[in-house]
Simulated scan of single mutants.
Amino acid sequence: MSTTITTPAADETCAYCESRIFDHDPVCVRDCSDECGSPTYFCNYACLLAFVEENELTTGDACEWSPE
């Protein structure tokens, strides 16, 4: 499987706050558990974190740790 990487358009907006991503420190996320679909762009890590928390994307996805 291969993924093509392209530079987003200059006016691409953040998936969370809708700011232009290149006005900030952009982050690109791609869900590769779903056939590496289209990338989602965030203007910075804070917006990515807020998006993950609001959509409960970590629920049930974290490894379980035991001191034993």
Rank of each mutant, 00 (worst) to 15 (best):
M1L: 13
S2I: 02
S2C: 01
S2K: 03
S2G: 02
T3G: 08
T3I: 14
T3E: 10
T4W: 02
T6V: 06
T6C: 02
T7M: 05
P8C: 06
P8R: 07
P8T: 06
A10G: 12
A10M: 09
A10C: 05
D11S: 12
E12T: 15
E12C: 08
C14P: 00
C14R: 00
C14V: 00
A15E: 15
Y16F: 15
Y16N: 14
C17V: 10
C17Y: 06
E18M: 03
S19M: 14
S19K: 10
I21T: 04
F22M: 14
D23T: 08
D23N: 12
H24G: 00
H24C: 04
D25F: 06
D25P: 07
P26H: 01
P26V: 01
P26N: 05
P26D: 02
V27E: 04
V27C: 04
V27T: 08
V27Q: 02
C28R: 02
C28T: 03
C28Y: 00
V29A: 14
V29M: 11
R30N: 02
D31K: 01
C32Y: 07
D34Y: 02
D34H: 08
E35F: 02
C36M: 10
C36E: 13
G37F: 11
S38V: 14
P39G: 09
P39D: 11
T40A: 11
T40F: 05
Y41H: 15
F42K: 03
C43N: 04
C43M: 07
C43W: 01
N44L: 04
N44V: 01
A46Y: 12
L48D: 06
A50V: 05
F51Y: 14
E53T: 11
E54H: 01
E54Y: 00
E54Q: 08
E54N: 11
N55R: 12
N55H: 09
N55T: 09
N55E: 06
E56Y: 11
E56G: 13
T58R: 07
T58M: 11
D61V: 09
A62S: 14
A62H: 10
A62N: 13
C63K: 08
E64K: 06
W65G: 10
W65T: 13
S66F: 00
P67A: 05
